[in-house]
Nucleic acid binder design. Structure first.
Lengths: 204, 204
DNA sequence: ACCTGAACACCGTTCAAGT
DNA sequence: ACCTGAACACCGTTCAAGT
């Protein structure tokens, strides 16, 4: 039976909560800011987590845990993978300032591995050649990661106003969506194209 | 007429050269290491570039300058865009340790803008709807960026040896390519799928 | 067991002082 | 003009000392 400790000032959970608030609000994570928000000393944090890297790692697990793995036996394999990709990106979109901190280290978490296994199973079931499954998962992952990074881009990523030397881009920017709709449309177009490519790879 | 200064210890070019060597060799850029490699004092660097961020920005321009923009009038628009995407990724692959430093800030450089304009012109010429051009360029960019990040991944990104709970992924890893060939195959598969998607978008 | 203040090594940057 | 050493504010982390 676990003895309930009383009056513990910090805990792994409260540290992660505060760290996420720091990142969301200030876009960065320093031990001093974190400790101030917790009403504790910076050195106190080290009694619960072995350092700043461990905090970021815990946040990766926390964000990854919110992403549902695709169902292995879903007959609509494209729908299953699409749902997973959208959940992945949505989880990132909830904390865009966290993205640069997560990609500084390798991405794979335990929850992510299970999702990859499910996707591998879906692709195998769809008829994709065994040797092509890892490359397709890699392509999906690269696109999801790049799309997540795109969410951190400014609303107007290309400044082309009054740039007569960039006529085609200027016209495209004027005609196309901007802000969040630009990012969303790009994600859906690219995802559909990748799924169609996998489907063709399975049929061929 | 420009007066040739004699015995200048540092220059923007020598600083960028040394900074790139620092990043390639140690994976990071500190002013102390940079100065030591230059045989100068850290503060001396500030007489040529206004700080660490400016050095990274100069390196972004330097890397971007090595990427040929696609030809506007190429009748093979898929080939033109493919060549640009491969050049983009190859330039990044030459300095993988630089990638995390570049994506910490927004990507767009002056050379990049011209490339985007060329791609926009190629897509318009291919018949892609005006409103879809910016989303498609965004999708290409996200994929290129994610694929570049993938180059910094370890040779074996998913550790699935002796993991009976991940059967599909384990089989896929065994059957598929590893290391650089994994990344290359993924890039080519994804790129082909995105181009096919754009082509279908133009026809529809 | 948990928390703290002081200390440490390191970081980017500034600036008065030299030549 | 270019370069330097000293100084500054900040960073993550350690540790002996408290409770």
């Amino acid at each position: 039976m676990v003895v309930k400790r009383r009056n513990r000032l910090l805990s792994i959970e409260s540290i992660c909560d505060a760290a996420l608030v720091c990142i969301d609000e200030s876009g960065r994570l320093t031990m001093a800011e974190l400790a101030a928000r917790l009403g504790a000393s910076p050195s106190s944090v080290y009694h619960h987590l072995p350092g700043r890297g461990a905090i970021i790692e815990a946040l990766r697990e926390r964000v990854g845990a919110t992403i549902d793995s695709p169902a292995v036996d879903d007959p609509d394999w494209m729908g299953a993978i699409s749902g997973w990709m959208r959940a992945y990106r949505q989880a990132m979109a909830a904390h865009p300032n966290l993205i640069p901190l997560l990609i500084a280290q390798p991405m794979t978490s335990e929850a992510g591995l299970r999702s990859y296994d499910r996707v591998a199973g879906l692709l195998a079931g769809a008829g994709v050649a065994d040797a092509d499954i890892v490359p397709w998962i890699t392509a999906l992952d690269s696109f999801a990661l790049g799309s997540a990074l795109d969410l951190t881009a400014p609303d107007q990523p290309w400044v082309v106003a009054d740039r007569a030397d960039l006529p085609a881009l200027g016209a495209a920017v004027t005609a196309g969506p901007a802000g969040r709709r630009r990012a969303d449309t790009a994600f859906e177009l690219g995802l559909a194209a990748l799924l169609a490519g996998m489907s063709g790879s399975a049929a061929g």
